[in-house]
């Protein structure tokens, strides 16, 4: 019995030392991590709504009012240039091919999609992961919010965007998400 206690004690000491080392390491890095996260988020918002200079996040109640049952829209930000409201950014989570996919969409006050950006994904490199590339995301820029967006091989019309080759699930997930955001915007925010 004594031996087991001695072994357990030594293991406990080692673990305790490890845990304290980690606690120190955590306090050293956690601020930096939060800052890096914040910067990444700001940069993403700037990318999808480049006409704005500042962003203000809508609080939980207002968010719930606007999205209702569509809780996969997780964040909405108002974009300001000076004191003028120039547009909105929407964060949405959809089901991609390899797992959950989070992306951001920007819509300007004059009813145009200003850009999309994929934030988190588990898509296949070379296929669904191409959703992060400009040739895909740029095809959303300037599309009007009043008609349904569809993805095609060679987008020509006002409501057509670039489809990803052999990545139908990824493309559809993103396009459906954008259409949902379009709908929410038109119904609740475009007054």
């Amino acid at each position: 019995m004594n031996e087991t206690i001695k072994l357990a004690l030594i293991l406990f000491i080692i673990t305790a030392v490890a845990a304290s080392v980690l606690a120190i390491s955590n306090s050293v890095t956690s601020e930096r991590i939060a800052e890096a996260d914040r910067l990444a988020s700001e940069r993403a918002k700037m990318e999808v709504l480049d006409i704005a200079e500042e962003f203000k996040q809508l609080d939980e109640n207002r968010l719930k009012e606007i999205v209702g049952d569509n809780t996969n829209i997780t964040e909405i930000n108002e974009g300001y240039k000076g004191s003028d409201l120039v547009g909105y950014t929407f964060n949405i989570e959809v089901n991609g091919y390899g797992g959950p996919l989070t992306f951001m969409t920007g819509i300007s006050k004059d009813g145009k999609i200003t850009g999309i950006k994929v934030l988190v994904h588990e898509e296949t490199p070379g296929l669904g992961a191409n959703s992060t590339r400009p040739f895909f995301t740029d095809s959303f820029k300037g599309k009007p919010v009043d008609s349904e967006i569809t993805a095609v091989r060679e987008p020509k019309a006002d409501n057509e965007v670039q489809a990803l080759t052999s990545a139908t699930v990824t493309t559809n997930a993103i396009v459906d998400g954008v259409n949902l955001i379009r709908q929410i915007y038109s119904e609740k925010l475009s007054n």
């Binding site: 673990t15 490890a18 606690a23 390491s25 955590n26």
Partner: peptide
């Protein structure tokens, strides 16, 4: 949460 890896593997 930073203790996740250690705790899980133990």
């Amino acid at each position: 949460e930073y203790l996740q890896t250690i705790v899980f593997i133990l």
